[in-house]
């Protein structure tokens, strides 16, 4: 990034001036396309239902926070966020805990069946949740975990553990092997070395993997909805509540939507340079 930063202005200038302008136009249009629907959701969340249905307005004419207050004071609503948070955090912790040693093994050693195992992991990322919804429901019902946070957390491991292994393996590959060997010669045990020396070295990788586990667990609906009914009901499923006898409560629905965007928006800044690497499963 650094040397590209130093040289690119010159490079851009000599590659014909109009392109820069064209680029700005393309980017402006694209970002506008991305922001418009989100703006509309935000604007609706600040309107009263009377205003939403009464006429068309580009921005809220009489600004109201009533929709947000409804959500933040009604237990049935805000518990949805709490439930989602609980299983998302559980899933992130479990995924990282099992993925760290596995990724280390893949990045450092050849062992029987390693390549097959690696591809098999990827196949789990390809499994349509729709295929697994019913079996999961029956599996967790039969062991008495239906409608608990841990059931959703474990179910999401289906796609998050492979993802975490792939991302972490990508980061671990970048750490020279000599570090491991030196540590062993110095008399570190494996556990001690891993926690005290190795993990700090790949801290950014762990952060990115955690972010991706968090995110994919947060955005998923089908499995979390199938596996819960009351106690662990996620916010995404709670949102169907807005469809009442009197029609849809658009204002509250929009406010609930806006609140689900907040957690992602808060952390995105920190991982902005690693998002591509994470999506590429650690392979960029």
């Amino acid at each position: 990034m650094t040397d590209a930063a130093a040289q690119s202005p010159a490079a851009v200038k000599s590659r014909s001036f109009p392109r820069v302008k064209g680029g700005t136009v393309v980017m402006t249009l694209y970002l506008l396309f991305l922001m418009l629907p989100i703006y509309w959701l935000l604007s609706m969340s600040l309107k009263t239902n009377a205003e939403i249905l009464g006429g068309f307005s580009l921005w809220p004419r009489d600004l109201t926070f009533a929709n947000y207050i409804t959500i933040l004071t009604d237990e049935a609503w805000y518990m949805g966020y709490v439930n989602s948070m609980i299983y998302v955090v559980m899933n992130t912790v479990i995924s990282l805990a099992v993925a760290l040693p596995a990724a280390y093994a893949f990045s450092r050693y050849n062992f029987l069946g390693d390549k097959h195992l690696f591809f098999w992991l990827l196949t789990n990322r390809m499994a349509p949740p729709a295929v697994f919804a019913l079996p999961f429901f029956q599996l967790y019902s039969s062991i008495g975990l239906f409608d608990t946070h841990i059931a959703v957390a474990l179910a999401h491991c289906l796609f998050n553990v492979p993802l975490a292994v792939w991302i972490l393996e990508g980061f671990m590959r970048g750490v020279p092997k000599e570090i491991d060997e030196t540590a062993y010669i110095d008399g570190y045990s494996f556990g001690h070395f891993f926690v005290k020396i190795f993990m700090p070295l790949i801290a950014s990788g762990i952060g990115v993997a955690a972010f991706f586990c968090f995110m994919f667990s947060w955005v998923e609906l089908l499995l979390s909805r199938t596996l819960t009914s009351v106690e662990a009901k996620p916010i995404a499923a709670t949102m169907t509540r807005t469809v009442g006898a009197a029609g849809v409560d658009w204002g509250v629905l929009a406010a609930a939507g806006v609140l689900t965007i907040v957690p992602g928006a808060l952390v995105i800044y920190f991982v902005r340079n690693y998002i591509a690497k994470g999506f590429a499963l650690g392979r960029v």
């Binding site: 609906l221 995105i268 998002i275």
Partner: peptide
């Protein structure tokens, strides 16, 4: 650009549906 572009990726999928349903 990176931050704004990543935003849609982090929205729960049913909310993506809701956004377009309303829009």
């Amino acid at each position: 650009c990176l931050v704004v572009m990543s935003l849609p990726l982090l929205i729960p999928w049913n909310v993506v549906g809701t956004i377009w349903q309303i829009f």
